[in-house]
Amino acid sequence: MALPYPSTFRVQEKFEKLSFQYESQISEDSAISGCSTPSTPTSPIDFDIKIATSADQEDVRQFLQKFFYKDEPLNLFLELITDEHPRCLDLERFTLKDLDSGVNLLAVQNGKLIGVCLNGILERGAADDFECEDEKFSKIVKLLDYVAVESDPFKIYPGVNRGMIVKILSVDGSFRGKGIAKDLMVKTRELARQKGCGFITVDCSSYYTACAARKLGFKPHYTLNYEDYKVDGEVVFRPEAPHKALTVYTQRIV
């Protein structure tokens, strides 16, 4: 999610020059913040992009439940979502808490939600506290807290005081490879400029997410190998290969 992901629940919410050059496309429509598997590009389709409101909350929750929550590598490793426990309320609250902020985007075709891009605004010196009760999810939030401090993008953009973070970019599995993620990112870029943001950043907890970020023209800014992240001397996350690290990618908006 969105990881957005890994250890206190304080996550400093963090894609121009976006070149959008897709070669063999390791899915541009994978979830940025935890995509699942690459897809084969197919013909583009017609769809609309709209700004999310609080009225869309349940539709977005159900979409993420089906296409994102279970497959994100850290959620999967922790077994955050299982048949016995199909929902994590803190996870839902964390991902949906700012849905009506005016910077979250939905891709819709004939009334059906087929993609989401959940974003947030970063302000220099500001932090976002999130109180979490779920023991498993709190491990993810603590990691995100740690990464937010260590990878602070404002350090590499000293003249910038506002940025945009892409928290989750996810597309319906049956619609991947059709340009939906690309168009969502184009609109995200427009919103970032309108909001006076000097850069866009994304935390990639998934190998495939990192591949998608590179295809979108982002540059790696920070890498934390999961085997190197320890609490009380113990490795916290051991997701299955090829997910070996959480990587932060950024891109300057000019």
Rank of each mutant, 00 (worst) to 15 (best):
24 S>E: 15
120 G>Y: 02
149 V>S: 05
65 Q>N: 05
220 P>R: 10
164 M>V: 00
139 K>P: 11
18 L>R: 11
133 E>P: 01
41 P>R: 02
42 T>K: 03
177 G>Y: 10
229 Y>I: 03
1 M>T: 13
167 K>N: 14
36 S>D: 15
93 R>C: 05
75 N>H: 12
44 P>A: 04
175 F>S: 01
214 R>E: 12
165 I>G: 00
127 A>N: 14
30 S>Q: 13
221 H>I: 08
43 S>F: 13
139 K>F: 14
21 Q>V: 09
131 E>M: 08
231 V>I: 12
201 T>S: 11
37 T>Y: 13
246 L>M: 10
141 V>W: 12
181 A>M: 12
160 V>T: 06
38 P>Y: 15
76 L>P: 08
143 L>Q: 12
238 R>N: 15
155 K>Q: 12
207 Y>W: 07
38 P>L: 14
15 F>W: 14
254 V>R: 12
47 F>P: 01
181 A>T: 07
42 T>D: 07
41 P>Q: 02
144 L>A: 14
217 G>M: 10
87 R>F: 08
155 K>P: 07
153 P>R: 05
86 P>A: 06
145 D>W: 10
112 K>E: 05
4 P>M: 14
68 F>E: 14
72 E>A: 02
33 S>T: 00
2 A>C: 04
14 K>D: 12
161 N>R: 00
217 G>L: 08
23 E>V: 09
18 L>K: 10
182 K>L: 14
254 V>N: 13
12 Q>K: 15
167 K>T: 07
7 S>N: 06
119 N>L: 00
239 P>E: 09
73 P>G: 12
56 D>P: 06
41 P>V: 00
59 D>R: 15
74 L>Y: 06
21 Q>E: 15
5 Y>S: 01
179 G>T: 00
220 P>I: 04
239 P>C: 03
37 T>F: 11
70 K>V: 10
164 M>P: 01
152 D>P: 05
11 V>N: 05
160 V>H: 05
116 V>H: 01
200 I>V: 08
138 S>P: 00
145 D>F: 09
147 V>H: 05
68 F>T: 09
177 G>A: 06
122 L>K: 02
80 L>S: 04
19 S>Q: 15
103 V>C: 11
197 C>D: 08
46 D>S: 06
90 D>Y: 15
130 F>A: 09
124 R>Y: 12
59 D>V: 10
56 D>M: 07
210 A>N: 08
129 D>L: 11
16 E>T: 02
119 N>R: 02
152 D>I: 02
141 V>K: 11
38 P>C: 13
3 L>K: 12
58 E>P: 00
133 E>C: 03
106 L>F: 09
40 T>N: 00
219 K>A: 13
57 Q>A: 04
101 S>M: 01
13 E>T: 03
103 V>M: 09
178 K>L: 13
219 K>D: 15
132 C>D: 05
103 V>I: 08
78 L>F: 05
209 T>G: 13
74 L>G: 03
111 G>Y: 04
237 F>Q: 05
96 L>E: 10
66 K>V: 04
195 K>L: 03
169 L>Q: 03
39 S>D: 12
82 T>C: 07
191 L>C: 00
1 M>K: 12
